[in-house]
Amino acid sequence: MSRPVLATLDLQALGNNLQVVRRAAPMSKVWSVVKANAYGHGLDRIWSALNKTDGFAMLNLEEAILLRQRGWKGPILMLEGFFHADELPLFDQYRLTTSVHSNWQINALKAAHLQAPLDVYLKINSGMNRLGFLPERVHSVWQQLRSFTSVDNITLMSHFAEAERPDGIAEPMARIEQAAEGMELPRSLANSAATLWHPEAHFDWVRPGIVLYGASPSGKWQDVANSGIRPVMTLSSEIIAVQTLKYGEAVGYGCHFRAQAEQRIGVVACGYADGYPRLAPSGTPVLVDGVRTTIVGAISMDMITVDLTPCPHAGIGAPVELWGKEIKIDEVASAAGTVGYELLCALAPRVPVVTM
């Protein structure tokens, strides 16, 4: 490994975060959400650290098959269900639970000839208006599904758009209750935010995602700072060059940053081609040689420049944490005008990844 940029995954932190979820929702089973290649961490790398979960939830059929091939025998929930009717034989073969959110999926299940019926998650549109059936249709869809020989157990499912807000689930919960009237079915409603902050939404299964990986569902680290959640991914590198700017001299593309006095600048081997956000502005936090400092100037494809004023002894080879245990990914994401989810998922393939 010649270039020093590296992503390190703390698998003990991943297991710890699952236990935090269990403490938050002690009466519920847990779907560990591992979509988007486990939020950029690599499903094949991390799934065994979550093997005490009750089930895995994801989108891609290929990833579900990978889990089965690796030996996972527990439930697997396909959050968007099957995308084409000809995938149903594989759902049958690998015993996958499918969500159902559209009329065409109902028709496909009705026509399917399976070795054994599939468990189904019936998706309620509770106001997010992405996937699911409107509350007034849910009862009739349930009646259809329960009549099919291809369908076994049915669970009601929905999703919250604003569960990070104290009052963010009241209206969706009212719609869900309307939809569920007259049906004594299990429910799976709670995402990470609802799992942490809305126990009234826990029911039978919770579906934590981002919180398992050690970031805040609200995008604000202070909201989970006392929860016991620990960051899983650390993105690190080193100083590869040092420049001393004179007053008025600029650094980086566009000359957006100019020194206000003589200033030492460190050049870090990491850039937007590694997954660091290109729009992170001057002032974005970074840790150099154990000292908190900030980025200065524009993010380049392969390099970042940082202020060495707070760490005058740092030089070439000094360690740099871009995000991780000290510099929380939510801080970096907020500075760049995005969310931690995006940064984790955007880790570039060229960055080596190690587990610990």
Rank of each mutant, 00 (worst) to 15 (best):
I65E: 09
A314F: 08
P231H: 09
V33A: 06
A49F: 07
K52E: 15
I124K: 03
L66C: 00
E164P: 00
I265E: 06
L212S: 04
Q93I: 05
L245I: 06
F56D: 01
T195K: 05
N226M: 11
T98D: 06
L18Y: 03
H101I: 07
S158V: 03
E171K: 13
S237E: 05
C311Q: 10
E87T: 02
A24G: 07
M157L: 15
A261S: 12
V34L: 10
W31F: 15
Q144E: 14
P199I: 01
G297A: 01
A161W: 08
D289S: 10
V151E: 09
M27V: 10
R68S: 03
K325Y: 12
T305Q: 12
G252F: 11
N60F: 14
P217Y: 14
P217T: 10
L196W: 10
L90G: 02
L90Y: 11
F148P: 04
Q263W: 09
R146W: 13
V288R: 00
N16S: 12
Y213T: 02
N153R: 15
N103V: 14
F257Y: 15
K73M: 10
F257M: 05
R22S: 09
A112C: 04
Q19G: 07
I265Q: 05
A261Q: 11
H113G: 06
K246Y: 13
R22M: 11
R230E: 14
L43C: 03
